Amino acid sequence: MVLVTAPLIGFSGEIIWPIGQILLPVKIGDAEHSTSTWMNFVVVRSPSLYNEIIGRPGVRKIQAVPSTAHRMLKFPVLGGILTLRKQTIAIGSTLIEEGWRALCGLLRRNLDIFALKLEDMTGFSRHIAEHRLNVREGCSLVRQKKRSQAPKRNKAIQEEVEKLVDAGLMKEVHYHS
């Protein structure tokens, strides 16, 4: 990991200081059609709905053509062109007033690419975008203590998870040790 000296500025103006930057191999696509490249990732210690965000350098690196009007990203793979359909799942709720105004403006300008509710997320195939843990054979798993939440927050978390499971966007997976 390489040291990063510049902060990241969030949508609501919050400042996040990166822990570092790391170059990692990335494979995008499914089992039959994919492309691979090395991409830089900025490592932060911050709660987020997203594990990673591919920026313009990454889009250029895989020679992708994004279309906000069609909510998709197309890029060349061996044997043809692969199409990923873009969909957003949730928006943070901790924005200050100025952040809300900026977010509302962004949403109004890009109504065609955001889903307002889970039912609006159609055409999503797990085979295109499915996250898996890349665990090396023979390595022992690291077990962490379950983090507890306040009862009210725990109930809200459980309700959101149930919505995602019911919509088929998330499923429980058991890893054997």
Rank of each mutant, 00 (worst) to 15 (best):
L118G: 00
P47D: 01
G58C: 08
E52M: 15
H33A: 12
W100Y: 07
Q87R: 15
R136G: 04
E160C: 09
V161W: 11
K117D: 15
L78F: 11
Q87A: 15
D112N: 03
K117T: 15
V2R: 06
R153F: 11
G105I: 01
A102Y: 13
V44E: 01
A102C: 04
T68R: 10
G92I: 09
R56Y: 11
T5E: 14
S67G: 02
P66M: 09
G138I: 02
F41R: 00
P7Y: 11
Q87L: 09
Q144H: 13
S93N: 14
I15G: 06
Q21E: 13
E160P: 02
A64R: 09
R109V: 04
P151K: 03
A129C: 13
L49W: 12
E130Q: 14
I128Y: 07
F41C: 03
A90V: 15
L116C: 10
P47G: 01
L23V: 09
V65F: 12
F75A: 04
I157E: 01
T122M: 13
W100D: 08
T88H: 03
G29Y: 00
T88G: 00
E98H: 02
A6T: 15
R132V: 04
S48D: 01
G168W: 13
K61M: 09
L73K: 02
G79D: 10
I28D: 03
V135G: 04
E137C: 05
R101I: 04
L141E: 05
N134M: 09
A156G: 08
L3N: 12
L49M: 13
A64F: 03
G123S: 02
L106H: 11
E137G: 02
G168Y: 13
V135N: 06
L3W: 06
T68P: 00
L103F: 15
E97P: 02
K86C: 13
G13S: 07
S67N: 07
H33S: 13
M170N: 03
Q158T: 12
R109D: 11
R147L: 11
G10K: 14
I9L: 15
K163C: 14
H127C: 10
S140H: 14
T83M: 10
E119G: 01
T68D: 05
H176C: 07
L82K: 14
S148C: 03
I28K: 01
G123D: 00
G55T: 10
G58S: 09
Q87S: 15
G99S: 11
P66R: 05
L23P: 07
S140I: 04
H33E: 05
V4F: 00
S48P: 07
I53E: 01
L111I: 06
H131W: 14
E160T: 12
T35I: 05
F41Y: 02
